[in-house]
Design a protein around this nucleic acid. Sequence first.
DNA 1: TCATTCTGTAATTATTAATATTACAGTTTT
DNA 2: AAAACTGTAATATTAATAATTACAGAATGA
Lengths: 137, 137
Amino acid sequence: MNNARFQISVHILTLLAKADGKPMSSEIIAASININPVLVRKEITILRKAGMVQSKEGKNGGCFLAKNAQNILLSEVYKAVRQDATVFGKSKNTPNPACPVGRQINQHIEGIFQIADDAILESLGKISLAEFSNQFE
Amino acid sequence: MNNARFQISVHILTLLAKADGKPMSSEIIAASININPVLVRKEITILRKAGMVQSKEGKNGGCFLAKNAQNILLSEVYKAVRQDATVFGKSKNTPNPACPVGRQINQHIEGIFQIADDAILESLGKISLAEFSNQFE
DNA sequence: TCATTCTGTAATTATTAATATTACAGTTTT
DNA sequence: AAAACTGTAATATTAATAATTACAGAATGA
């Protein structure tokens, strides 16, 4: 996974939670995060496919939450961002198959990755977007 | 953090656990992982500073475990590799300070990163190198 | 003692991944 | 019909990783 994207998604969602249903443009959001608007729209595509936000095209359009912030868990956000990988990503190494350890390491390390990923999901499942965004003054 | 490095460290330690105290050269280790020997030596430096391995210079030198594999937890390995960051790394963004959310996001997201990191540490703390390496045939 | 085989580390280059930018068709509003 | 958006693709730029080269210093052993 790419660390920065989780943070970007949480930032977007926090802004939307604060916007109280009013559509926000990718340009406004990008200005708060200080990244490119196209990246914001790409990230919003992920969040939309995961059912957390909705978009409205055209003038005065933008993005808004698809459900109440209390019903959006940070674990969902994490899951949407990391897609089908785990915290540690996917092993992209191609170890030596002639070595017993090299031959089996990917299989066994995936088990570890899964354990770590499950632990993250459980911990982030305890925090809702509402709780997170309410921390802000 | 960099995902691949955790896997590299676990691979190195698994090889050493199997080597039964006999020093292994960085070249042999690198051949199993299929990466450059210099990268292996760099990673070993991290593991050595964390007290998990020892090195012997000179001819017939190499690297070996500094303690029993039962006493090396995967959480230690993870901690050594990720250094002073968390799973999600360090926020390197510089959000807009003129925005209330932008101004506070780094501070609040760090709290989330910490929670996720603690969860990983706890889950990996339950697995020793001995248990992990015994999975291999 | 001296060639050999290692480590440790720095410096440089090459490769890959992440991010930014440009562009534009399509949608909605006024 | 102009304006202000989204969605998405294509390309360029920048940053992060990894490989390579290089070499001093340590231990071994013929």
